[in-house]
Design a protein around this nucleic acid. Structure first.
Lengths: 201, 201
DNA sequence: TATTGGTTAGTGAGTGATAACTAATAGGGT
DNA sequence: ACCCTATTAGTTATCACTCACTAACCAATA
């Protein structure tokens, strides 16, 4: 077996870590099992990561970076409603493509009992919310009338995304998530939760 | 120290288990630590529970039983909106009184890699959703016009509750949850998400 | 006196991490 | 083109420790 560069190996290790968490739970994520799957020995893992928590940090980084991609994608759209819809649907697409990631996202307790990891997770959640709020505020700047506190609406939207993904996960990824999400979006729109409001000119 | 009855001891063990999960995470929930906190030895724990999973089952049972209480309380209200509001606010009250429980609720991954526990968690989530749907349907029966699929609206409401509690937890339980929830409910009402709709007579 | 809730002492299996050492690789000087 | 050297990616062997769980025995209670 050929030697890999640190970058390649790091990617591989994080991939396998995510898979283990998904398939057998965080409790089963041991350096032993991880090294077995990667195909190198335990100490070799420590060539690439300081310790176990450092690996978890790597996983969180991935989610964080995806957030930026999400935001850029949402901003390409014209109206506020379209931006929000893109933001939400992108989430569903992300998880539909990477179901393993749901296991990580719904294992928050992993992160909450280590200060460094907790901070990182907090930043991640704030990032998502800030993005949404920013979408609202820049629309407001352009004269769109938002009914309701952007902070509240952001929380509501994020809650909906989370719950939908959780439900999908609990039903063992049966129905297509994106389809379920689209139906939900229609319901939301029908109720007037997603609308561009009145434009003041 | 007087010997306790099984019922009392079981309660005590579950209480301490929840506390450990809350304070140090599920990873720190060991029979050793648990017995130390309860004030008995490790094997004594096994006099009251079959194994570790059996203790977790006990925790899930508590959440389940609270659900029934929740539902009864919601049904005392007159209109659909009031019922839904009561359902939501009761959740916030529950968690505000028992912040430790948030740690359990957001540690789903504990339950998801053991078939029996996974089933129990699935039932729990279905229970909550069935309750909401039932509220919608009995209102529909009385002629109230619901805009949107009750299934979808239920998911949205549950998502909102979860996200609000998660946010509260992430901010280290700072702001009063019930107050935050009330404000959120107003936003929701203002947006028309919670309304009794048109009554057909 | 029988049952129940407790004890002490011990099991095998698995944990994250480290010390000591080696094979592979990339780059610069001749 | 060739060797030499520093660095990097890997190895084997082992550490000290924790895990869930059990057998055997004992004392308090009903």
């Amino acid at each position: 077996m050929p030697r890999l560069s640190t970058e390649e190996r790091k990617e591989q290790i994080i991939n396998e870590a995510i898979k283990i968490i998904h398939e057998e739970g965080y409790g089963a994520l041991s350096i032993r099992e991880l090294s077995k799957r990667v195909g190198i020995t335990e100490p070799a893992i420590y060539r690439h990561f300081l310790n176990k928590d450092d690996i978890i940090k790597g996983i969180l980084d991935r989610i964080y970076h995806f957030g930026n991609h999400l935001f850029e994608r949402a901003k390409t759209k014209e109206t506020l409603t379209e931006k929000l819809k893109m933001f939400i649907i992108s989430h569903f697409e992300f998880f539909e493509d990477r179901p393993e990631m749901t296991s990580v996202v719904f294992s928050e307790d992993i992160f909450l009992h280590n200060k460094e990891l907790e901070t990182k997770l907090g930043e991640l959640m704030k990032q998502r919310k800030r993005m949404l709020i920013q979408l609202f505020e820049s629309a407001q700047h352009e004269g769109v009338d938002i009914k309701g506190d952007p902070e509240d609406i952001s929380l509501i939207l994020l809650g909906i995304v989370r719950m939908t993904v959780l439900e999908w996960r609990m039903t063992v990824f049966k129905h297509p998530l994106k389809k379920r999400g689209s139906k939900l979006l229609k319901t939301i729109e029908g109720m007037g939760l997603l609308s561009d409001g009145v434009i003041h000119t």
